[in-house]
Amino acid sequence: MMETIHIDGSLGEGGGQVLRSSLALSMITGKRVEFKNIRAGRAKPGLMRQHLACVRAAQKFCGARVQGDELKSMEVSFIPGEIQAGDYHFNVGSAGSVGLVLQTVMPALILADGPSTLILEGGTHNPMAPPFDFLKQVFVPQLAKMGVKMDMNLEDWGFFPAGGGRMNVSIEPVNELKSLSLMTRGALKNRRGRAVVSSIPISIAESEVKVLQSKLEWKDISAEEVLQPNGPGNIVMTELEFEHVSELCSSFGEKGIRAARVADKAVCAIRKYLLSEAPVGEHLADQLLLPMALAGEGEFLCTEISSHTRTNMEVIQKFLKVKFSVREQNQAFHISIT
């Protein structure tokens, strides 16, 4: 009989992250998953469109039998089928960031029986999800170290609320993931600041650049304009590239928020990373847990542990026979799998 994993959304940080990790693990392990109390206690409980998009995508990749896949549903039953490698095209609209869908299906495609390509349309730069640039520059290089050949390209920018972005992803699967040990940053190779505007005056990006320049004193700081914009948007990104790891912090412009404040947020975030010596930032830690658990062993040192990360570890431990251990070490956290 198929093993069933029960996930209670009312425990821990029972948000979309739990749903996405569980779906990914269900597809990989073939274990049936029963969700209850999905997003209980939120102002709008149950599945929202962005969550439903992930459920539907997961269903499509493995031919799962799904019950309760409706908006506002608080109970979902997901019985996975065989993962099908191949060419996929998803349009998730502006509300559901394409990055979140990618997060859901990518682990399964890494271990599929053939290469896959994905075209994802919708929001590529959305304040509620890791932006495309983070995935490509920070996360994908670590996956490469684990043996995954993955490439992703941004074809169109998609800011909230208009959306209309597009990216393509190609994944070469591996039989087994290599273990990862990420304990030091290594030598600094590159520092870059970018202020990007879409459909709004470039002067906004230029004033953000001035703030970055005065506060960071990096050489490579530029103002950019999206050439074929689909809607208005503004993002400021501060990136650091080290020998073993990269970090990218971002901040989104909004109507009514001054450009200087937008730039400030990106500066503060990257300064906070620089205060520590741990290589893995909060967001990368979240992304690495699952591949590392699939590899069966590995360790990294991260700057902080959020409640998101802890909940994510609990979910992974429900599906896989792994045990995370967390140890505080010189004001950083050592996470390892035993």
Binding site: K44, G46, L71, A95, P161, S199, P232, K255
Partner: peptide, 17 residues
């Protein structure tokens, strides 16, 4: 995109599709 346009706005809600 900076203003509320009811015909589009009704399609932008997270809990309504």
């Amino acid at each position: 995109w900076e203003k509320w346009r009811p015909s589009v706005a009704l399609c932008m809600h997270e809990d309504l599709a």
